[in-house]
């Protein structure tokens, strides 16, 4: 079993947020970051899919719809490894609080839904330690789907799972795809000990709960 950063003796701690699109996790992790910053903590927020080099290849692959489940999986693993080795690990060695908007569980869910064997995907990411705290934003499918559709002018091809031929209608495809991702997250909740945040409610109570849980689990004064 893979250990957490704390268990591996890192001075830093990693907090991840996971959940389907529109579950509100990015808003919440941003607010958490602001709070920690204002308290004077050493904190860094890392986004999923952000390294420039890999971004070029990914967008090329996505544009040309060249990606198959295996290459989709590998290119995201490459991107993750880049951020992990160059950013996450050094910051954690330096005693930072690292906040991750999505972590390896996003890959587990997406790749498995696309037909990659679960143990192959897990093996791929086995170089990465587990977060010290993983929040799972659990919202009803309708809530998250409607939030996304309301906020976005148009859905992107892969975001809507169009590569899986679930439906020719992009919104319908998005709905089916998000439903399958949600199933994967629910199945992982027990295994990885996700901390659930009821994500159907408004912003403030979620943030209040998150801050309380972070304070309980992590001794924040060490990060000032």
């Amino acid at each position: 079993m893979i250990k957490t950063f704390g268990e591996q003796g890192f001075p830093g701690r990693l907090i991840a947020v996971e959940g389907v699109d529109g579950s509100g996790k990015s808003t919440q992790i941003y607010l958490l970051k602001r709070w920690l910053e204002i308290q004077g903590c050493k904190v860094h927020l890392s986004d999923w899919s952000s390294s420039q080099l890999v971004k070029n290849a990914t967008s090329k692959g996505k544009k040309r719809t060249l990606l198959t489940p295996t290459t989709f999986s590998l290119i995201h693993a490459t991107d993750f490894a880049d951020r992990y080795e160059r950013q996450v690990v050094p910051l954690l060695r330096a005693g930072y609080l690292v906040l991750c908007d999505r972590y390896i569980f996003t890959a587990y869910a997406r790749d498995v839904v696309r037909g990659c064997p679960p143990d192959w995907v897990r093996g791929l990411y086995s170089f990465a330690a587990l977060p010290d705290l993983t929040f799972f934003f659990k919202a009803r499918l309708e809530t998250s789907v409607n939030r996304t559709l309301a906020n976005r002018p148009s859905l992107k091809y892969f975001e809507a799972g169009m590569d899986m031929n679930l439906s020719t209608d992009i919104e319908e495809s998005f709905r089916i795809y998000q439903g399958r991702l949600l199933e994967q997250y629910l199945a992982m909740t027990m295994e990885f000990g996700f901390t659930e945040i009821p994500a159907d409610q408004s912003v403030e109570p979620q943030q209040a709960l998150m801050r309380r849980l972070v304070t309980d689990k992590i001794s924040l004064k060490k990060f000032i």
Partner: peptide, 29 residues
């Protein structure tokens, strides 16, 4: 998919080991 990016990465020697390894695996796949 990634041959140009791989060449660029090697030129600058900017990727760490697991990343380079996965990049090559992507190229292979």
């Amino acid at each position: 998919l990634v041959s140009e990016e791989l060449a660029a990465a090697q030129e600058g020697n900017i990727l760490s080991r697991t990343t380079l390894s996965l990049f090559y695996a992507t190229d292979f796949a």
